[in-house]
Amino acid sequence: MLDEILKSIVEMEEEEAIKKAKEYLDGGGDPQKLLEVCRDAMGEVGARFEKGEYFLSELILGGEIFKQIMEFTLPKIKGESVKKIGKIVLGTVKEDVHNIGKDIFKVFAEASGFEVIDIGIDTPEEKFVEAVKEHKPDIVGMSCLITAGVTSMKKTVDKLKEAGLRDSVKIIIGGGRVDESVKEFTGADAWADDAAKGVRLCKQLIGVEG
């Protein structure tokens, strides 16, 4: 059954996957195991994306299927501890009001076992600093779509340095206009312009298998 669910998710069979997941739980299946299978499925979707077999639309649809299954699965494992592999403070940088890239990444990061603290869009540098102080994340994820966001990213990294927090976190930047030279310019540790690569790099950054 779990194998079939995994296959349905990976093959983008939305209705089928959700139906089977419900059946599994209704039949007394272990929600923790279902969660793990869904995570594996998302990992496979990400892998196929990175191989060029899947495209953004599959990432989005996969994320949507995952979210729908989690809606009725997570409440059942509430109380039991869901092990997290790391913590990410995530936000779209100052001046940029787009959320799509950030949100797609968030689903995949959560599906991979990260705890994600989403601090929103148009996020001032200070708010990143405060969130790092408060949540003590392993990783800070910054997203942007517009070109002006590139300079906001640099300023945010600088602010983290000033606050003496730069060395306590890894920084990953992401979004449509981000590349290697943006990474160098901003002083981040990694960059990604898609969610699958982003999550893989996050795992590498904290030393979990990539």
């Binding site: 070109t147 590139v150 300079t151 590349d179 030279s181 943006v182 160098e184 310019f185 901003t186």
Partner: peptide, 9 residues
């Protein structure tokens, strides 16, 4: 020409 090169190069 990547715009990032003009911004950061």
């Amino acid at each position: 020409v990547p715009i990032s090169l003009i911004v950061g190069g």
